[in-house]
């Protein structure tokens, strides 16, 4: 038998792919390079779908990469002596099996996702918008409807980048853009939606915990894209109402007729 060192070396290199691949994913949560904390009602579903796909693809990944490793180790020419390679052009049975099984799995996977998708993007709660978010280069302009709950009336409250929402309640955001594309990304609420000029897109969620989190722009909107940063504050109904009131008073004091220059 010829020297198998080269074969050993290359097989181990390819074995390292599944081994280190799994290791990276195993270690990631413990070094905090992983899904950020979720504080939304629908996020659990999205995260569990993520884990489900991770498990499924993880198994396929390990099995196929291990087979690859095993074949190149076992069928290294140095290990084969005088034996000829197997003269085979394929197998009808195998083709049928490995077409049907993935087809069924993929179809199931697609159908399995639909409910969560519908929750986040299709089953809009019947309510008036909690807040209108108008994206523009490079800030988030916010408009709260005020006591009459109607947008576009004189009691509207205008703010920039400082989004507040009540906890444990449905929140409906009306998302617009004034200039170019932006994307309204709340990592901790598992929300992302592009803001498109000319469109009014509804976004809804229910926060389940109080706290302060990032509002990120996730669609390239020009040179200042990286700094288009907002904050979302999730607070109790009382705190939220008090905050609204206080901001409204501040606005009255400084700006007699603010909606003039707004869209």
């Amino acid at each position: 038998m010829r020297n198998r060192l080269a074969g050993l070396f290359w097989s181990l290199l390819f074995l390292a792919v599944p081994v280190l691949g799994v290791a990276v994913f195993a270690v990631a949560p413990s070094i905090d390079v992983w899904l950020p904390k979720d504080v939304s009602a629908h996020g659990k579903e999205i995260d569990s779908l993520f884990y489900f796909i991770l498990a499924l693809t993880g198994v396929v990944f390990i099995v196929t990469e291990m087979l690859l490793f095993w074949f190149i180790w076992k069928y290294d020419v140095a290990a084969r002596g005088e034996e000829k390679a197997t003269y085979i052009h394929g197998s009808h049975t195998l083709e049928v099996i490995w077409t049907i099984i993935p087809a069924v799995v993929m179809l199931f996977l697609a159908i399995y996702q639909m409910n969560a998708w519908a929750d986040v993007k299709m089953r809009r709660p019947v309510m008036k918008p909690t807040v209108e978010v108008v994206a523009r280069q490079f800030e988030w302009r916010l408009r709260y409807p005020g006591p009459d709950e109607e947008l576009g009336t004189p009691d509207d409250l205008f703010l920039v980048n400082d989004l507040h929402v009540p906890v444990d309640e449905d929140v409906l955001v009306q998302l617009k853009s004034m200039d170019v594309l932006h994307s309204f990304f709340l990592p901790n609420l598992r929300i992302k939606q592009d803001a498109v000029p000319g469109m009014k897109i509804p976004v809804w969620f229910k926060a389940t915990e109080t706290g302060q989190y990032d509002l990120v722009c996730a669609e390239l909107c020009g040179w200042g894209h990286y700094k288009m940063k907002g904050r979302i504050t999730i607070e109790s109904r009382e705190d939220f109402d008090a905050w609204l009131e206080q901001k409204y008073r501040e606005q009255e004091a400084t700006q007699p007729n603010p909606q003039e220059d707004m869209l």
């Binding site: 074949f71 085979i88 197998s91």
Partner: peptide, 9 residues
């Protein structure tokens, strides 16, 4: 993978 299986690599 099937192509590698049983070969002389």
């Amino acid at each position: 993978l099937g192509t590698l299986w049983g070969g002389r690599i």
